[in-house]
Design a protein around this nucleic acid. Structure first.
Lengths: 235, 235
DNA sequence: GTATTTCGTGTCCAAATAACACTTATTTGA
DNA sequence: TCAAATAAGTGTTATTTGGACACGAAATAC
């Protein structure tokens, strides 16, 4: 059958908003853009959708190209479709938000892009509408993390409650009460306490926990209200 | 400057998932598809993004083309990007979810498409992946409506509490306690009681309410928890 | 062995939630 | 005109959840 002949076709790109947590602060992985225009400017990792891959596959491919990682938590944010967002030619970009365990990330894989993990506070200027994408991704992250156990994707397999709390502190840029926080997260039943302690970060040591994977899958979509008064932090 | 010359370009479409409420049930507006393939099959209203319009503008244009309505609540759901979703040619489609006051909708505007408002329960088979789009939109609607005062977009300016409750009943396919429900919605401070009653639907008559527009804007993003135990209904 | 650090926990009060039933207004028809 | 029928509107109580708050325990360093 013939094609939809009279219609205009567009480039469709993927841009990845990649979050990591260094134990202290939330960070974002940026690269030096590899092509004109704006070559060598700071940018989100991106690429064009290819003819035979789904958009989700394209996003996974591009993430892997930069980080070497597969099976990472990734979700489509939305399309960014302003006709003038790229000055060269119209490109409709799909923002994909990824949460990675920063410790699994291997620097050397991606020499080509000279990537760096930036604190949200001192991000450089970004090309095109990438700043807007980052803001949208951050807003989405805070929104989802207030309700669902999503931030575990940023942590290594074993983690301590103080680490977890410091992650929430980093994401929301707000302090939480330690007693209420631990009661809350433990009451979800998602965490299994291990016998060993992390002795690196304190004298007393803090117990390691791991996620209960099956409960995690079950409850991933539940409303768990991790963040008190979330209205205060989201907008 | 030259274009991104070696990359493949794709058709980008908009498909609109249009919800309405007839006072009793949630309904979805479907049309007879106007082009090959699958001409005259039931379909979501859609169209191709044009060179000089943003994707949001395209969605608004397509909605207006079918319904004649402007300024309607609309949000982008996500991109549907399977390379084989349209058998003729690859088309990446952006799903846009719209909530309209079904009473403002004028049938005659859109003879061309022979549209009909379907109950979700007895929807016909839809072309391509439109069924998946509908399911995604419905899930999103239930999710958002559990937290935010979004369903008012489906109601006329003046409405009664019984009408509002019946809307929630329709959306979640579940009964809610009348006393708890009215306490909940009134406690948001979003509703202003009018002096007249709706006498059409009951002997006693029910007071009309209108939305307090300024508070609505303020609180639109707040977590208001309209639905008890939302986990039970969403998935 | 004393000082320092940080982990881990428990109580109380306030607020929100969920279950529950009766009265009121109005119309209809006996 | 009175009784019955219908749907609207409202209040109480028990339970759960949420948030504010402070101290003892474990380990190390000096």
């Amino acid at each position: 059958m013939s094609k939809y002949s009279k219609q205009t076709r567009f480039l469709v790109a993927i841009d990845c908003i990649i979050f990591g947590f260094d134990g202290e602060n939330l960070r974002l992985l940026l690269i030096h853009r590899g092509m004109e225009p704006e070559k060598n400017k700071w940018s989100l990792m991106g690429g064009f959708v290819q003819p035979d891959e789904s958009t989700d596959d394209a996003a996974a491919r591009i993430l892997k190209q930069l980080t070497g990682m597969e099976g990472v938590y990734m979700e489509q944010l939305r399309a960014f479709g302003d006709p003038k967002r790229d000055p060269i030619e119209r490109v409709i970009s799909l923002g994909y938000s990824a949460l990675v365990d920063i410790h699994k990330y291997k620097e050397q894989l991606s020499d080509e892009f000279q990537p760096e993990w930036f604190l949200l506070k001192d991000m450089p200027d970004l090309i095109f509408d990438h700043q807007e994408m980052v803001q949208a991704a951050l807003k989405n992250l805070r929104y989802k993390a207030a309700l669902h156990p999503i931030l575990f994707e940023l942590l290594p397999e074993k983690f301590t409650l103080p680490q977890l709390q410091s992650l929430y502190t980093g994401v929301y840029d707000a302090e939480f009460d330690k007693r209420n926080f631990s009661r809350k997260v433990l009451s979800t039943g998602l965490l299994i306490r291990q016998k060993e302690k992390d002795k690196e970060n304190s004298k007393k040591g803090a117990f390691y926990y791991i996620l209960d994977k099956s409960k995690y899958k079950d409850k991933f979509q539940s409303f768990l209200n991790f963040v008190p008064n979330p209205d205060n932090f989201l907008f």
